[in-house]
Design a binder for these strands. Structure first.
Length: 479
RNA sequence: GGCGCGGUACCCAAGUGGUAAGGGAGAGGUCUGCAAAACCUUUAUGCGUGAGUUCGAUUCUCACCCGCGCCUCCA
């Protein structure tokens, strides 16, 4: 086991992870704003968070992971009003879609999935605390945060406020503010808008306050890890720090982790460029969830990931190679005993794998360790040197790999079906496959290869691939 | 302009002051009744460009070029 090292945006360095309470990690990850279906760029970040989550758990840390769902913001209010429904009703569809997408991508549920609108009181309480500490000022019914009073402002994103002049183009807000960088904690309601009646007045929360309030409610005033997309570092996370630390006087977060963005064909993904994809768009084109997860996970999170369909195809092949190996390990019968040196080799591969992930979640390195082992074990099997006694250890390594990567289980079909893709019909059940395989084996036995190939072709057309193995048996898989 | 990330083979990508992991793709081959899978060989004297430091640089320094992100809502 290697020491877990993570890149902390706060220090700009890779640091050893030393949780506040040894053995336990409190982690807050910024989730989606549920005004529409989340896109693959969002999922790049969510998959990164999931890899982090799974890795920490696999390493035996007790994890308390909170993910928020932002279900109140300008876009939601606008869209809900346009649709003539309440914001809760409007967002529900996208919340459910998000949960379904996560399940499809094998993104584990965090310990707490929470919604902003369920925590208005917590936000109000936090704002009141800021009022007491005189970090706020009112203006036209709204409440603003006075950045000038928070001397550490900019420590996360390294922004230099000295160059920012009030009235510069950053000031798009219609409200009166003391300084251009000041941000709204609580927004006065506009006519017809959804609002909450609270001790600090009628209105709705500003964007940043929800994360401060909810993170501290569930994880305490100082949390170990907070993550999100790189774009959130400023201003969102910077403002979270300002709010939280001004209220408590304590460090808000010890490790800030930010995922780089995903590009599509080298360009920023945007609806106007026509390179904007949701998961459903890709599944409709026939790509598998496991392939997308692999594609998103295989590039280390601090690198921009250039998403291409060619890359998705490459990921598909990589996943197949791993699954083929797992299937071979499980189905082939090897000679009894243990191969000399194989146990040590497996231990070494597992060690290299752990070293990769421990190094700031270097998934590419971890995968290389996995693939190295796959090749070596295949060679041993081809030579007839691999022994049955080593199967268990090899499988154990594969399982530990999949605890984090989660791509080996061949459940793509089922998961897609749950999402509404791939009609139930046309599927071939196992019994029928076994029956046809039996018929083909009989044909082969009497060297009737025409009949044999006909059956293989028929199954192939229905998505079943047959592989004849050395020991005369047949292994099949779904394409 | 400020802050930040990156430019490694056809594609994705790791990496180190001592001579380039891994995956995908292509080509040839082994195995197979034929396939599939697997395996073998092959594809960067080269790591954006130029200069410097060094016995030695892809790895360090400087300059430059190019791509991308943030600075305004954004994963």
């Amino acid at each position: 086991m290697h020491e877990i090292q993570l890149h902390n945006t706060l220090s700009g360095k890779v640091e050893p992870l030393l949780p506040l309470k040894p053995g336990q990690v409190g982690m807050y990850t910024c989730g989606p704003t549920v005004y529409d279906y989340a896109h693959i760029g969002n999922y790049r970040t969510f998959v990164f968070q999931d890899i982090l989550r799974r890795f920490l758990k696999w390493r035996g840390l007790k994890l308390n992971h909170v993910m928020n769902l932002t279900d109140v913001d300008d876009r939601i209010i606008t869209n809900a009003a346009a649709a003539g429904v309440g914001i809760r009703e409007y967002t529900e569809k996208y919340v459910q879609a998000f949960f379904a997408d996560c399940k499809t991508l094998n993104i584990e549920a965090p310990e707490h999935w929470i919604r902003a609108t369920d925590h208005i009181n917590d936000m109000v309480a936090l704002i009141q605390k800021l009022q007491q500490n005189t970090y706020t000022y009112p203006s036209e019914g709204s409440l603003y945060y006075r950045i000038a009073k928070f001397k550490d402002y900019g420590k996360l994103s390294k922004v230099d406020l000295s160059g920012i002049q009030a009235g510069a183009r950053v000031d798009n807000d219609r409200y009166e503010k003391e300084s251009a960088r000041d941000f709204a904690l609580w927004k006065a309601p506009k006519p017809g808008e959804h609002f909450w009646e609270t001790p600090i007045g009628a209105g709705r929360p500003g964007w940043h306050i929800e994360c401060s309030a909810m993170a501290m409610k569930y994880l305490g005033e100082t949390l170990d890890i907070h993550t999100g997309g790189i774009d959130l570092a400023f201003p969102h996370h910077e403002n979270e720090i300002a709010q939280s630390e001004a209220a408590t006087g304590k460090p808000f977060v010890r490790y800030w982790l930010h995922a780089e963005h995903l590009l599509v064909e080298g360009e920023k993904m945007s609806k106007s460029l026509g390179n904007f994809f949701t998961l459903r768009d890709l599944f409709a084109k026939g790509y598998k969830p496991s392939a997308l997860r692999f594609a998103l996970a295989s590039v280390p999170y601090r690198r921009q990931l250039n998403f291409t369909f060619d890359g998705l195809q490459q990921a598909t092949s990589s996943v197949e190679r791993l699954r083929n190996f797992a299937a071979r390990l499980k189905s082939e019968k090897f000679p009894v005993g243990n191969q000399r040196g194989m146990a040590e080799r497996i231990a070494q591969a597992a060690n290299d794998y752990d070293a990769g992930l421990s190094d700031d979640l270097n998934t590419a390195r971890a995968l290389a360790a996995m693939f190295d082992f796959v090749r070596e074990a295949n060679i041993a099997m081809d030579k007839g040197e691999f022994r049955q006694g080593d199967v268990a250890a090899a499988l154990e390594f594969l399982e530990s790999f999949d605890k984090v990567f989660a791509v080996l289980q061949d459940t793509d079909g089922e998961r897609l079906k749950e999402l509404g893709f791939g009609s139930g019909e046309g599927g071939v059940d196992d019994a029928e496959i076994e029956k046809l395989v039996g018929e083909r084996q009989a044909a082969r036995a009497r060297r009737d290869f025409a009949a044999s190939d006909r059956i293989r072709k028929e199954l192939a057309d229905r998505g079943i691939i047959l592989e004849d193995t050395k020991d005369g048996k047949v292994r099949w898989k779904r394409k």
